[in-house]
Design a protein around this nucleic acid. Structure first.
Lengths: 199, 199
DNA sequence: GACTTTATTGAGCAATCATTCAAGAAAGAG
DNA sequence: CTCTTTCTTGAATGATTGCTCAATAAAGTC
């Protein structure tokens, strides 16, 4: 079989992610993508079908990557609460990251495309639901490990946690000092993994 | 002096707000605005200068309106904490509102335009800082009224509160049941106006 | 009524948008 | 090498973008 594709799909998607994450869906033009991917329009369309198709694949890639990373940090840990704590602390440097990549891309997509591209927004929503479910599993594991009181409501805690992370990542987009973001992160980590939550 | 403008500026801005809030800045075309405002391009440009100028005025209008409403609810109250509690409970129905208007427009703007229109994003940021300051005043008043312990950090509490509201309003954009949003809202209200915070 | 001043109109502008496709280039198979 | 298959190219597509401006309409002043 002749002529393998010159571009590497995963690299193209990683480049496209960067552009879409920073500029958003509507403000990203095909010209932007041509530059970022070093591909000509024909190749992009041959490979991904459309701008929407490319975005869709980028979104999946981002979400799967995020979910995989979360699972590694949170599941099958000797102490679920310790894993959660470490994950939350990994957000402490949010204020020092690339500004346009501080907010979660799923959230940015959920907001930007709610009206204009509801199917893409719905896909982002579905991935966020998976993340909530993952948090729920963590709290259930913590209950089994006696790190969380028996009467706790893991679903509710998972949603509370997601609210806190949503808010933190939005806040980190504001032009405040990275230190304030760090302090807020630590407060959240303490709130959700506090000693007095232990049975 | 002859021929007064037929359109009413505040009404035009209110209509433009609805379109921009729902579709975002980049996905709103001049055709969308012509339809919403019932104005022809020439009139729009005579009145507002440019799409960016119109958006800027819309953003100011939204922010001033929000700030005024917040001040009414939160300042000069016999009990600052009671005012805060009532404000937070007013968010309990977020899950039943127009989907694309559940998230704060300032936040949507901060995220969407961070890279592509940094001056508009910065304006949204500045208004969010005013809101944080307002929250800070509320907590200071609560301390003076002995509704909050003397050692409390009003600035930190204000930022925590903003994080919670950011997160809640994003979460309410997800396709979850309005009841869950209500429960989360009540939890936040209790967290920030809890009895054991009182000195 | 005539005059002045401003608002409104909408056709039309260049630029950009996402997308297509015929032609050419590249690489393995024989 | 030739052949076949696939990938890449980039000019060109029609639609849409934000925006302009000369012509027209409307309202107060005199």
């Amino acid at each position: 079989m002749p002529r393998p594709a010159k571009f590497i799909r995963t690299e193209a998607i990683a480049s496209a992610l960067q552009v879409f994450w920073q500029r958003g869906y509507h403000a990203t033009s095909l010209k932007d993508l041509e530059t970022a991917l070093s591909m000509r329009p024909g190749s992009i369309y041959a490979a991904f079908g459309s701008k929407e198709g490319l975005f869709d694949e980028v979104l999946s890639h981002y979400a799967e990557r995020s979910l995989t990373s979360l699972r590694e940090k949170l599941l099958n840990r000797p102490s679920a609460m310790q894993g959660l704590r470490e994950y939350l602390y990994s957000l402490a440097n949010l204020g020092e990251r690339e500004p346009a990549e501080r907010a979660c891309m799923l959230v940015k997509t959920l907001l930007e495309l709610a009206t204009t591209e509801p199917q893409l927004s719905a896909r982002a929503d579905a991935y966020l639901a998976s993340m909530e479910n993952l948090f729920c599993e963590v709290f259930m594991a913590a209950m089994q490990q006696n790190e969380l009181e028996k009467g706790a409501d893991p679903r509710f805690l998972a949603q509370q946690l997601q609210v806190a992370i949503f808010g933190l990542r939005i806040f980190s987009q504001r032009q405040t000092s990275p230190l304030r973001v760090r302090l807020l992160t630590e407060q959240i980590a303490n709130q959700f993994t506090r000693v007095d939550k232990i049975a």
